[in-house]
């Protein structure tokens, strides 16, 4: 996974979210699709809520302020994978 790719959340992709126990449901208005996600996806999306363009590295640094992410290489790779998957779902956009 390419860690240097940049992503952002667009206001057009606003999500309605609802926590159900350890799951979070995301309703994506633009597509009408409901997504069922678990941690760390809600945390990732929260830290992109300002709409700023981020790389996996920048997101890692933001998350590291609040969570113990373990070895940086592994965490970074996982974040990059999540960003790629979220872009495929249309929840974030490549910037």
């Amino acid at each position: 996974m390419d860690n240097s790719l940049s992503y952002r959340r667009d206001p057009a992709d606003a999500l309605l979210s609802c926590a159900l126990e350890d799951l979070t449901l995301l309703y994506h208005r633009r597509s009408g699709q409901t997504h069922m996600v678990i941690s760390p996806v809600p945390e990732l999306l929260d830290r992109m809520a300002d709409g700023a363009t981020v790389t996996a590295q920048a997101l890692h640094d933001r998350l590291a302020q609040d969570f113990d992410l373990g070895p940086a290489d592994e965490a970074l790779a996982e974040i990059a994978t999540h960003l790629y998957a979220l872009a495929a779902l249309g929840l974030v956009r490549p910037a």
Partner: peptide, 8 residues
């Protein structure tokens, strides 16, 4: 039954 399963 968990809420996620109920929703699904």
């Amino acid at each position: 039954v968990g809420q996620g399963e109920i929703f699904m």
